[in-house]
Amino acid sequence: MTSRKKIEELFFKCLMVLSLLAVMGSLVLIIGTVIYKGAGSMSLDMITSTPEGGYYLGKKGGILNAIAGSLILTGIATVAAIALALPLALYINLYRARRSRFAEMVRLSMDFLWGIPSIVYGAFGFSVMIFLGIRASLLGGIIAVTLLIIPIMARAIDEAVSLVPRELLDSSYSLGATRFEAAFKIVVRQCLPGIVSAVLIAFGRGIGDAASVLFTAGFSDRIPLSLSEPAATLPLAIFFQLGTPFPEVRDRAYASALILTVIILALSITARVLASRFNRHIIK
């Protein structure tokens, strides 16, 4: 009887360990594959030059256009999203009662947006652009990506702000601070680690997303210099290079995937380091 119990437990424990190994193993496999395949065709040219004539047929060049395009596009979109998401989170936590109906409605709306697939953002963004008369361009991509990452940032910042102790707010109000001063001078500082990680997560999500920029940003072999020019992005560069029949070009797609993965990993590490760095003022 006892041994049957033990065997059952052992059996399930084995299943659990195998499952966890599968999960962890797939991550290792993904990173490993990308590094193994990508490193082979990696070269300095890849990150320092833009495509030259016949690049997609296997001729010389790199994907600096896409790297720069992605960084510029996502960078501006991130700034735009902070400008909207930070006031949003501060407003529903400080100007409104934290659990008021308005605050809960905003949270619900952000939850909905968070779940909506990025292809829908892309399609919606594209029809907005047609409506406004904008062609596929850096600006179009920025609009779509901003919409995509607003909910991610708003939810994450809201979470950080809602953890600010009531007493800290009471203290600031008791000193005669207005809500505005409490929000931007005290709460923002108190939540800085949370805000920074929210920004980095959102940036990571934005730079890695292909479906939202597929129709909105267009593609170009040059680094975009104005908002109205089409902009290449890394995910799409990978996608398009993979779609060609030439092995050299496909190899470069792997290298591009490696570049994108490295950027994402760097963001994730930065988030961790910065979060611990900014903790020094915080009273838990």
């Binding site: 993904i30 990308v34 890695g208 292909a210 479906a211 995910p235 993979l242 995937a257 993965t261 994730s268």
Partner: peptide
Amino acid sequence: VLAGIPSVVFGVWGIL
């Protein structure tokens, strides 16, 4: 990290 990997990279992995 797994959650942060872009879907294109998942796609590349899938193909490979």
